[in-house]
């Protein structure tokens, strides 16, 4: 019963905050922005607000966090409430958990973002080239991607990590390459729909080169779907990195990250009956992952809905 009350309470607060945020955006922004945000649903506003909070927390982690990322204290395995210096307690080697949680966000988000950008550069360039040049290049790239996509992504990632060894850099590269196959498929399809347009034919018949075609004619028309896709890809990459780290194969110590925090703290869940705050520690890290992903998805969902609505 109390749990239900808590949930309702949280939902009400979230709705109120999102409403206020949207009202503030409409009030502050110039006219085109006003029109855009006036029709934004509350969930999307919530998503946007959360993304802003996460990004600021990640950027200003050194300012917000009470201690340094790898700072070790003589008090280890402190439970929340044991020591006023450590709000959420300390881990088995004496690092402040609140600090680790904040830095974990910074690392996980930053690495996922970097990986997604890499995957996008790789996939989008190859996809646009395949669609514009066509012929053997398209065949070569498409068949390669088909073969790479015939193995489930997590499984392939694990195989490659076995081979290249466990390190953060390896993980970033492996995921970027594997995820670029998905970006390739989408950007090739998007560009493929644009390439058949008469204005591309007109530019080709004028004698324009590949660079002009891709950057001046195709890219401006491909940006909206690609931005939405970037949001979705970020979610996938973020979840994949979290999963790998949870398995102990992703982001490596001493970097803090949410996936491995969940694994390290998971035993506390069994204390739920007599120490609810302690039990919620692993859920906090896992929930932080879920909350960011869901926020991005809410915003992407709204963008896709707008795009499909405008087409009709």
């Amino acid at each position: 019963m109390t749990t239900l009350l808590y949930i309702v309470g949280i939902l009400v607060v979230a709705a109120a905050a999102s409403w206020l945020f949207r009202a503030a955006l409409i009030a502050v922004l110039p006219r085109p922005g006003k029109l855009l945000f006036r029709t934004m649903p509350l969930v999307a506003s919530f998503g946007l607000l959360m993304i802003i909070i996460y990004v600021s927390a990640a950027l200003f982690a050194p300012v917000i966090a009470p201690y340094g990322e790898a700072e070790v204290f003589d008090k280890f395995n402190a439970l929340p409430g044991d020591d006023p210096r450590f709000l959420l307690g300390t881990d088995q080697i004496g690092r402040d958990l609140l600090t680790r949680l904040i830095y974990g966000g910074r690392n996980t988000i930053g690495i996922a973002f970097l990986t997604t950008v890499l995957a996008f550069l790789l996939g989008a360039i190859a996809g646009f080239l395949a669609a514009t040049v066509g012929g053997w290049l398209d065949q070569l790239l498409s068949r390669t991607v088909d073969a790479l996509m015939a193995i489930p992504q997590l499984i392939f990632a694990l195989l490659l990590i076995t081979i290249f060894g466990q390190s953060t850099i390896n993980m970033i590269l492996v995921i970027a390459v594997l995820d670029s196959t998905r970006v390739f498929r989408l950007s090739r399809a998007v560009a493929g729909n644009i390439v058949v347009m008469d204005y591309i034919e007109a530019a080709k018949l004028r004698g324009e080169g590949l660079g002009y075609l891709i950057f001046r004619e195709i890219l401006p028309n491909a940006t909206p779907p690609l931005i939405a896709e970037f949001g979705m890809r970020f979610c996938f990459v973020f979840l994949l990195i979290a999963a790998l780290s949870f398995l102990g194969l992703g982001i490596q110590p001493p970097l803090a990250d949410w996936g491995s925090m969940v694994r390290d703290l998971s035993q506390f869940i069994n204390y739920a009956v007599f120490a609810p705050l302690t039990a919620s520690l692993p859920l906090m890290a896992a929930g932080a992952i879920a909350l960011l992903t869901v926020s991005v998805n809410f915003v992407v969902d709204w963008m896709l809905h707008r795009a499909s609505g405008l087409k009709e």
């Binding site: 347009m197 008469d198 204005y199 001046r216 401006p220 028309n221």
Partner: peptide, 11 residues
């Protein structure tokens, strides 16, 4: 024939 697809909408 189709002026819609003959002109790049973003240019």
């Amino acid at each position: 024939q189709m002026a819609d697809t003959a002109l790049n909408p973003k240019v």
